[in-house]
Amino acid sequence: MKRIFVYVVLLLVSATHAGAQDSSLLKLLNDSMDVQHNHYAVTGTFKATQLVNLPTTESPARKNLQFMIMHRFGKLNDGAYALFGLDNAEIRFGLDYGITNRLSVGVGRSSYDKTFDGSLKYKVLQQSTTGMPVSLSAYGLVTHFTQRYSDKPYLNARFRTSYTAQLLLARKFNSNLSLLLAPAFTHINLVPTPQDKNDVFTLSAGGRYKITRRMAITAEYNYLFNNQVVSTDVSRSLSFGWDIETGGHVFQLVFSNSRGMTGPYYLTKTTGTWGNGDIYFGFNITRNFNWSKR
């Protein structure tokens, strides 16, 4: 009896062993792979470095230079006489360079107020498949406008400068949906009246939804808290965009009630309202150049 039992065990062992060997070379690999490589960075949270005006957690990779043209036409409600705003346009040229995969530096020049800007973006946290649920970038921007006003001789360099700091918190929920939450602090060196605050707080939220592999719809809303900007009749910036990606280019067709394209302008100086038809049509185009060889 004992002997039979032993032989049965032996038979079973050899049978399962053979079976396992036969069908499961691939299973063996997949099992050990699942143990080893279940952890990697979530990439492609957004297609571009900005939603419409709001910066995203994306930045150019190391040794990549991004050239960006941002364009905003006049108001749609200017009517047929001004070809619905197409007669006049504001433009911003920007260059952003990736020093590392996490740190990028940018410069830009807007025709609006003839403003120069410089920025830094640093990725503090990177979302990954297990563990880190969000990406977090810190963004700092300095703007300096150079528009000449003959009636304002007191406008020195200090008075022309503003600062914006933003924390960009993003999560890619799935391959289509990504959301962004961005509290911001803007310091304006010169405000029109003593009642206006020099330090302005805003909270921005936005997102993108991919409609095809290469196209996405984006939206952003920038909430300006009450009683900070009082002398001018400001509204909150709401923008929608349509991202189209082709190779090294990203085209963004946008509609916004903001005409300014950098921090202090769209966050704290938006005067248009959607209800009145103060809608600026425009586009952002980015082109990426690469020098890295790995």
């Binding site: 070379l25 990439t43 990779a61 190391r62 990549n64 995969n101 990606e245 690469n290 060889k293 790995r294």
Partner: peptide, 27 residues
Amino acid sequence: KKTVAFSLLMRGFLFDKQLMQDHFNEN
């Protein structure tokens, strides 16, 4: 048994250009 198996993560492919790598994985 004369059998062969391979398994690999597509994300493991590294390109010279980061943007190409992103597009490879995304699109």
